[in-house]
Simulated scan of single mutants.
Amino acid sequence: MTPTFCCVCGCSRLPVGGSRSRQDPAEALSGAEGIRKPDVALFEIAAKRCAVTTLAEDGWMIGDNLTADIAGGRAAGLRTIWIDRGTSTGQDHGADHVVTDVLQAMEILQTER
């Protein structure tokens, strides 16, 4: 199975639009949607655009913000990977995996599909 990629973020630099299939990248941008992480609705929009019927179906949230990314992803039923940049040392993170860079996160996605 080809992994699904969904982007849920607050930036406005990513292109939006076009029809999406399960194999195509999709995004849900908080500025365009009018809601922000950790609101579960933003994750639901991304899942719908990825043609995923439930958030927990093959879903992951990768991020470096414990509240918006990790807590938001967990609240949405997603598995989570926290990119620990050393700013929250000793804090309970609740993430499924902890890495120090995006490449390590990608390795996890490849082994856990």
Score class of each variant (00 low, 15 high):
residue 8 V to T: 07
residue 7 C to A: 15
residue 93 H to Q: 05
residue 91 Q to H: 14
residue 63 G to R: 01
residue 70 I to D: 02
residue 75 A to Q: 13
residue 22 R to V: 11
residue 68 A to M: 13
residue 26 A to N: 04
residue 55 L to K: 01
residue 103 L to W: 06
residue 69 D to T: 02
residue 17 G to R: 02
residue 90 G to F: 09
residue 47 A to V: 04
residue 30 S to T: 07
residue 26 A to T: 09
residue 106 M to F: 12
residue 77 G to Y: 05
residue 68 A to W: 11
residue 76 A to Y: 08
residue 63 G to I: 07
residue 9 C to T: 15
residue 69 D to F: 07
residue 20 R to M: 07
residue 95 A to V: 03
residue 105 A to T: 07
residue 42 L to N: 00
residue 55 L to H: 03
residue 10 G to S: 14
residue 33 E to C: 06
residue 82 W to A: 06
residue 63 G to A: 11
residue 56 A to F: 07
residue 107 E to R: 05
residue 41 A to T: 07
residue 82 W to M: 05
residue 63 G to K: 00
residue 10 G to Y: 09
residue 2 T to L: 10
residue 13 R to Y: 11
residue 94 G to N: 03
residue 58 D to G: 13
residue 37 K to P: 00
residue 97 H to M: 04
residue 103 L to F: 09
residue 103 L to G: 04
residue 3 P to Y: 15
residue 70 I to R: 08
residue 46 A to K: 00
residue 102 V to K: 00
residue 89 T to G: 14
residue 3 P to I: 15
residue 92 D to V: 06
residue 56 A to E: 14
residue 20 R to W: 09
residue 63 G to V: 07
residue 88 S to M: 10
residue 109 L to A: 07
residue 34 G to V: 02
residue 17 G to I: 05
residue 79 R to A: 08
residue 86 G to C: 04
residue 56 A to R: 09
residue 108 I to P: 03
residue 111 T to H: 09
residue 105 A to R: 01
residue 56 A to V: 08
residue 52 V to Y: 01
residue 15 P to T: 13
residue 106 M to A: 15
residue 39 D to Q: 09
residue 85 R to I: 11
residue 57 E to V: 09
residue 73 G to P: 03
residue 22 R to D: 04
residue 14 L to S: 01
residue 17 G to Y: 09
residue 10 G to C: 09
residue 68 A to T: 14
residue 58 D to C: 08
residue 87 T to E: 14
residue 94 G to Y: 07
residue 85 R to A: 13
residue 37 K to I: 08
residue 4 T to M: 06
residue 5 F to H: 11
residue 67 T to F: 14
residue 77 G to P: 02
residue 85 R to Q: 14
residue 76 A to C: 10
residue 31 G to Y: 03
